[in-house]
Design a binder for these strands. Structure first.
Lengths: 233, 233
DNA sequence: CGACAGGTTGACCGTTATCAAAGATCGTGG
DNA sequence: CCACGATCTTTGATAACGGTCAACCTGTCG
């Protein structure tokens, strides 16, 4: 894993050093980095622990130092949807920071996880002092907004089979030419992420395999045999 | 309409004045406003005209001076989804500004519409010069992101009937105690927005009416008789 | 007044959710 | 290191939800 390489040297000595890898901050001078790092707190969560939950007041930005975090929401009717999975270098909690200060989603550590925490007041100070950070965050927000709207459109217009196919295609496209990839989550979580059920995931993957688009291998590995075919479904 | 009142005095004299009502800018000193307004261009579109389309390069922020704009996306399979409708004071084009510079959605004038245009270079200059604008935009982005993720979760977890009910409930809640409201779009557009078909919209509204939750009146008016009931569907 | 887009209604069928049960996998503690 | 239980996954049978197609209605605008 790339993260291990990136983080291996620094995190275990002083975990705060890791924020220097976060895209939002990685363009800063080292004095500015020092200044920011001096305000950062670090916190560990055990596997399964809830980092924050919807409805909770918040004034912190969480940056994943190492580990994995599941971000999910509950619908009005109480059904769970997986929104995204954070890995090293990703951040969350930002919505509450600039908005009404209340979390709308849940964050749960999937494995033992270490995060860096920046308080709202500190961050706002930095943003006003070093406006270039704002531009980075704006870019990141744009990205997320684009992703989210694309996802919404897929839900609105594509049937489940197509959503699965597009998801697989995206996985393989983020994989530099390889024809295999490891599913980034369980089939149950994938169902939640794609707005369907584990049964349907299982069935549709089988169908895609029968038709020769993919091959399911052990250990969540999927080989894509016909990417173009997938995209035409 | 409130917008008419807000804009009526200013827009017809000098359309640029309208950006002073935009939430992003309305906290600025008047000198700063002057500075920004001096870089703003104004442009008119006839009903039905396309303001920008997906795939087009872009380096402009569009602020609606008066009129209405339909923002929609096409899915991979070519199906259309209505993303939002902009009214006076709303803005669009921001994603391309901070991201890769290419529009992902389409913008079409629903009625004759006048927009103010700010170029990327000008905006970035202002953002670096007056960092508080960034905070405003970040807040607006947070808002949109929150809306979009909520919408995604609804698509992922709720059936069409529930999505319609929640939509009606939101309309009435943004309406300060009134029990009636005017549907902000045609049923065809509403279907596209909610990821369903006009036929289903028509049928479900009839069912909601039969059951006594709502009453459909002429001119796109809907009276909500049982808001609590709607929210329990 | 006529044309045309939008809206409604009906019949039908495909996709996917649901429920149930069996099978595989993973993590844990002995 | 193995065995156990819990959880995830698969498979099957069934039914409901909603999409599609077609026909008809309605209002809106030139």
């Amino acid at each position: 894993m790339v993260e291990d390489k990136m983080c291996g040297h620094h995190c275990h000595e002083g975990s705060k050093a890791c924020i220097s890898f976060v895209p939002i901050f990685n363009h800063l001078e080292s004095e500015q980095m020092e200044e920011i790092m001096s305000t950062v707190q670090s916190h560990s969560y055990k596997k399964g622990e809830i980092i924050y939950h919807a409805g909770e007041e918040s004034d912190s930005l969480y940056i994943v130092n190492n580990g994995k975090i599941r971000i999910y929401r509950l619908s009005e009717a109480g059904k769970e949807q997986l929104v995204r999975i954070l890995k090293t270098g990703d951040f969350t909690g930002e919505l509450a920071l600039f908005q009404n200060g209340v979390h709308e989603s849940f964050a749960e550590a999937i494995v033992d996880t270490e995060v860096c925490i920046i308080k709202r007041a500190d961050l706002q100070e930095f943003l006003l002092k070093y406006p270039s950070i704002s531009l980075k965050i704006l870019s990141e927000f744009s990205n997320r907004l684009e992703q989210s709207e694309k996802q919404t459109t897929r839900f609105a217009t594509e049937k489940v089979e197509t959503r699965i196919a597009l998801f697989l295609a995206e996985c393989i496209e983020n994989n530099e030419g390889l024809t295999e990839f490891i599913l980034p989550m369980s089939r149950k979580d994938l169902a939640s992420y794609l707005g369907t059920t584990p049964e349907t995931i299982s069935r549709r993957l089988s169908v895609l395999e029968e038709r020769g688009y993919i091959k399911q291998k052990p250990q969540k590995v999927i080989e894509v045999l016909d990417l173009d075919g997938l995209l035409l479904i």
